[in-house]
Design a protein around this nucleic acid. Sequence first.
DNA 1: TTGAAAGCGCTAACAT
DNA 2: ATGTTAGCGCTTTCAA
Lengths: 338, 338
Amino acid sequence: MGLTIKDVARAAGTSVSTVSKVINGHYSISEETRQRVLQVIEELDYHPSVNAQNFARGSTRTVLFLADLSPNTAFENPHMFEILSGLEAALRKRGYSLSLRGTDTTAACEVVEDVLSRRSADGLVIHASILSRPLAALLTRSHFPHIVLGLPNFESQVNWIDINNVYSGVIAAAHILEQGYERTAFIGGREYDMISFHRLQGVRQGLESAGRKLEEQYIWQGESNRQEGSRMTRQLLAMRPMPDAIICANNHIALGCMTAIQEAGLCVPKDMGVLTFDDYPFSQMTTPELTVVDIKVRDMGEQAGRLLADNIRHPNTQVQTFTTNPVLIVRGSTQRKK
Amino acid sequence: MGLTIKDVARAAGTSVSTVSKVINGHYSISEETRQRVLQVIEELDYHPSVNAQNFARGSTRTVLFLADLSPNTAFENPHMFEILSGLEAALRKRGYSLSLRGTDTTAACEVVEDVLSRRSADGLVIHASILSRPLAALLTRSHFPHIVLGLPNFESQVNWIDINNVYSGVIAAAHILEQGYERTAFIGGREYDMISFHRLQGVRQGLESAGRKLEEQYIWQGESNRQEGSRMTRQLLAMRPMPDAIICANNHIALGCMTAIQEAGLCVPKDMGVLTFDDYPFSQMTTPELTVVDIKVRDMGEQAGRLLADNIRHPNTQVQTFTTNPVLIVRGSTQRKK
DNA sequence: TTGAAAGCGCTAACAT
DNA sequence: ATGTTAGCGCTTTCAA
């Protein structure tokens, strides 16, 4: 097996260090020898050994992705894979490869300690769901390049990136108003459901900045499932005046909402506009199909990759960002205007 | 930076090679020194450098996963992530870490050539959707450890593993019979849809082995979407005698099927049993919920990991396996019996 | 602008 | 059972 850098040096009539410099784009090499060496590399079809490069450099050019990969997470979190794809693309563009490692919250600390001491990665991407205070402390203390996907649910100095759910709410409100709906309602998850909460906040802001108001009695909270979506919707339908548009915090709730409206004999989007967040395959399974404020979650992965690559170069910068890339996908459920 | 094997050797009063042997579980070390060295390693909190180990061994202890990771593949293929999770778990258990690389069919060959020449992985997991003839040839010719996820759609000598869709069909048929349905129909995708075809085959076998028959006029093929599912179902409902159970090749078709049956004023599961394959989140979104023959796709990932690890140890064995792990999930759509 | 040579930290063949 | 030592293939400092 294998050509080495020596073979190239010999064939090109130079030293190995010259070849190395050519490979790494060192400035001190004359254009002439650069071309010659490149030519030889091409002819010999030489590829430097990744292992030897890593070893000599003391780095791995690898980023490790840490998340909970227990059975069924994929179904519950179809976004994770998209994030991963975006991340991989962004990292590869910058010369890093991506490794994957499943772990739960408890084990995560040990895993990270292991990575640090064995130097088996140059950076870490950590899903917020497995971030604990000790882990955050470890990350901060070690100054190891990292980025957390999602807003940590406690104060910390870690680098993180998250979707701007508030802004998504603003977009939702704007669309509802633009379609001429007058009395907007919001049904969402419980207090601890931060995503729902932020979306609610955004809707409120969006309405208020247009001089409208999200009436308190039009806000309902419950579990995130279809049954609850139906239940909350029925509450709304019983009110006078009845709202004429319902913004649902997520798809599950929205599906229940649609059912309840149809069972009440009302027509979407004429009697009631319905809007939700995130474009899932089943957003298009209702009649009419659901208007959604979608999130370019792949973009978030790409941004995470970019930020992490920067962080590897400049380990002492802190990054805490909301990415603001929601996109409105208008479908039948809010198309009141022609 | 950091502790090296020399520090450990010095502290333990042995040579570096002894320490190395302890680390790698070499047989020739006495229990006594083993304990002493282990103790020192513990005390010093020493962790061998992955880079140095890889370099010295000439291997990476890494497996690369190759698949198409373009936008939206996650939605279209929710299974991929589950496979990945299973794979990671199985590989980790065997000392390998998993890397991820997105590529299309065309670029895949170059990527693999690069991996081979740079020795950047010890093995490859390749999704069948990006496998081309040249790539298969390269894999075979190079004897590089690999496993393809999914049955290649051409003859080849590569190692592969796939779901046993035929067997899933058999399970489906058995359940339908067991529930007392008399005239089974099958609606599925076009000829080129191999998954549908295999399931059909299985249903046929299952019925025949019970002395029944899948009548040719009860078999319809169309595109895999809801519209077509409805259309094919309406065809079936118009036939006399009408079938009393419909096996749908996939969820999309099944959803259309349910709609058509309900529009015709018939009752599932009394007048018509409905069964499909794969448990998706939306399998439970119909009323009644769909009985499905599910596939433990995570298990397939785990098996792939195991097979690949074996293949890395024994590069000259060929593996071409159907994993037979379908599981019947009985829900309302076929529960005719009490 | 180029080259010589000293590592990088570990493994494994060989010697004891 | 343990130790000695020659690599592994590259990067990088320093001298020329």
